[in-house]
Write a protein that binds this DNA or RNA. Sequence first.
DNA 1: TGACAATGTGACCAGGTAGTCATATAATGT
DNA 2: ACATTATATGACTACCTGGTCACATTGTCA
Lengths: 195, 195
Amino acid sequence: MPKDTFNNLSEDKKKRIFDAAVKEFSTRRFSDASINQIVKNAGIPKGSFYQYFTDKEDVYLYMMEEMSRDIHEIIEPFNPDSSFLETTVQRAKDTLKVGRIKPEYAKIGALTVIDNSEFMLKLLKASAGKHIQMIERDKQRGLIKPETDSEVVIKMIHIFIFNEYLYSGFDETRYLKNVEGAVQIIKQGIAVHPD
Amino acid sequence: MPKDTFNNLSEDKKKRIFDAAVKEFSTRRFSDASINQIVKNAGIPKGSFYQYFTDKEDVYLYMMEEMSRDIHEIIEPFNPDSSFLETTVQRAKDTLKVGRIKPEYAKIGALTVIDNSEFMLKLLKASAGKHIQMIERDKQRGLIKPETDSEVVIKMIHIFIFNEYLYSGFDETRYLKNVEGAVQIIKQGIAVHPD
DNA sequence: TGACAATGTGACCAGGTAGTCATATAATGT
DNA sequence: ACATTATATGACTACCTGGTCACATTGTCA
């Protein structure tokens, strides 16, 4: 949460700082990112930075909030009737769409994943609850075997999607093909009536 | 590859340097690790370091070679008749065993995985060839559906094992349970005659 | 207009990094 | 014993980092 002095700034200056943060955090992961570079790119004095933010985390969180606003405008609205695995594929497609429109955002996401295991853990845990409910519902619907270990399924999916995105070299077709391949295998593994 | 001057060193000194490298690289990932810290812990002057190694990569690779020797003494010899998924579970058990005997080695492995995506990619590719052959053999044996995408299966397994080890907080029982759970799901998904 | 508060500013500090190099010491061959 | 070569050494350079702080400038309200 930036300080009041920052919020009182002109939109132009705020944008310059946001852009500088995006540039830095999309190039170097959090721990390697440099405040000096951000102030340089934003064209503001070092002292001003500390008048606006307390530290690097502060400006990072601000940037993330602004980003997530943009991202929610890009991706499709969530369909509550979709099954867990359908949602999974949709999420992969959303990731690609974001990467197409805001490549820096995708890079920031990738760097976040490889940077900080604790942060990643928090992220996974935060979305896990929602997804476990989806899987439980799919079990009741008769789509998924009731003895399936929901947590393991979620982890496999999450991790595969993240890593595949990282390592597929931004080859969209390959990425989607592999994600769908993985979903297919898991589907066969957990479905009540495999195709 | 260390320089000749290093190889001429006394075993004691070599060990001190190796230990210092292990200490540093098991605490901080490669890019954060400090040569200054290594020389400090090894009790050798800065100048000597550069008489032994060209740079940080050099000492890192030396350390890895020494480590892999130790590791191969710890783990079970590879059973060529095992199926791919059996081998997978065995690998997870091996990882745990290494972690029990040489915890620093396990930490170095974990830090390597989260540090460097290129390195990780190389590692995955290096072992992928061998594993693809195993899967193909399992297809011919009638264990795995012939239409299975081998690459996707390998990636799912690799990534899950790595990450689960990272995030299971060194809880061995949980780790093994989750790995076996994942293997079970994939087995159901790709097996010709699911249990 | 004058007084006071809020904000802007960049030189500066302490601490870290990788790598170099002149000099000291030890080892070796003649 | 001497000369030559190999190795040991730590002070030093150049460069980076996050963060501070005294001072300059601007805004605000009476």
